[in-house]
């Protein structure tokens, strides 16, 4: 039985490797397949990049602390994840428009793939804003039999 675990990180000061190690330890305890662990790392990598690039820098006067919280638990045959930050309320999944590369190379938008990646990989993706936090809930399968 794997118990739920929550860790707070400072997205401005701590390297992403600290978050990755937390995820990898949890996934090992949950006996999740390697692919599930890799996808969980990728989703949290993309979410925290959004927090660092767009969330906290948009606060007037600039915040000195950039906390993110990650809660991982197991429900049935899924890993259930909750990612939180205290940046201004923003639902990144409101209007997902992947970049378009059909035009000439000089017109390409470099960036913008994080959110489409998350939306493609995460299960039961849900956003809410409560208690002063952006909260993003999602799941990933532990049992990939038949996938």
């Amino acid at each position: 039985m794997v118990t739920a675990q929550t860790r707070q990180f400072n997205a401005r000061l701590e390297p992403f490797s600290a978050v990755r190690e937390f995820i990898e330890r949890f996934c090992a305890g949950a006996e999740a397949p390697k692919r599930t662990g890799e996808e969980l790392v990728l989703i949290v990598d993309e979410l925290s990049e959004n927090t660092v690039r767009h969330g906290y820098p948009s606060i007037e006067g600039k915040a000195t602390e950039w906390p993110i919280w990650l809660t991982l638990s197991v429900s049935g045959r899924d890993i259930v994840a909750l990612y939180e930050d205290a940046a201004p309320a923003h639902n990144p999944f409101d209007n997902i428009v992947p970049p378009d590369y059909s035009g000439p190379a000089e017109s390409w938008r470099i960036g913008g793939w994080g959110v489409p990646l998350i939306a493609r990989i995460a299960g039961s993706l849900r956003y809410e804003h409560s208690g002063g936090r952006n909260r993003i809930h999602f799941t990933l399968p532990i049992d990939r039999t038949g996938m």
């Binding site: 990728l42 990598d45 993309e46 990049e49 190379a105 470099i110 960036g111 994080g114």
Partner: peptide
């Protein structure tokens, strides 16, 4: 072993410059 969208951005930038 692993690439995130940030790595992809660098590759796109490289391709854009090389193509130009």
């Amino acid at each position: 072993e692993y690439v995130s969208s940030l790595g992809f951005q660098v590759l796109l930038l490289a391709q854009q410059k090389a193509k130009a």
